[in-house]
Amino acid sequence: MSALLSIRDLRKSYGALKVTDGISLDVPAGELHAIIGPNGAGKTTFIHQLSGSLKSDSGAVHFDGADITRLSMVARVKRGLARSFQITSILDGFSVLENVATAVQARSGSSFRFLTPAASETALNAEAMEALARVNLADRAHRQAGTLSHGEKRQLEIAIALATGAKMLLLDEPLAGTGHEEGAILIDLMRQLKSTHTIMLIEHDMEAVFALADRVSVLVYGKLIATGDPAAVRADPAVRAAYLGEDA
């Protein structure tokens, strides 16, 4: 099995509450794997465990051939596993370009350089512009990030994750809070990213998930109750009962 991300029996509980209850999952390179599930299913906790911002109680996570279970968030990013945030998390006071250039800087040489202005490092800026171009934000490069529209901020989130040089992106509800048109832009964007990146997508928007995902896993009360291609999952009676039934 040559999965890029391989999760074995991952667990996390708060007191008696089992938030992540023995998840095992393999995501092969190149796949867009969507995680769906009702509110409170533990999706965000799961992402926190994968990105390293939350320690797991037990279980193992392997990424790109290495055991990353006990690595910090910083170390995971350096290995190529990057995340975006459910609640927009950008540097509001920086320019759009500087937000992305900072992420480029994190993997290009030492940041213990004190005497040359970072903002005029053309190599950093050029790479950052490429990432911005990929998310269609090139024309916003010199705006202050805090002044972007909500949808543009979500695009910027993705550009930052791209700029870390990640092999795999953990996207935590990239469509959260976006309107129909903004959502369409982001869906289109993720479709393009699929060709170059392995993606784990946590998302509420079913339409988007079934349009984009190669495979879908359904998370209910900390357990994966189904994994498979979108059509099979949609047809799964247990899934319909636990989850899709809400909408039907």
Partner: peptide
Amino acid sequence: TVVASRFGRVLRGTRDNRVRMQAIGFAPFG
């Protein structure tokens, strides 16, 4: 000069949003 440098940028970024900086690979401590 220092606050405009690479180092200063990391410092400013950490001030504004510590978790964001960790998520792109900067450990604030150093």
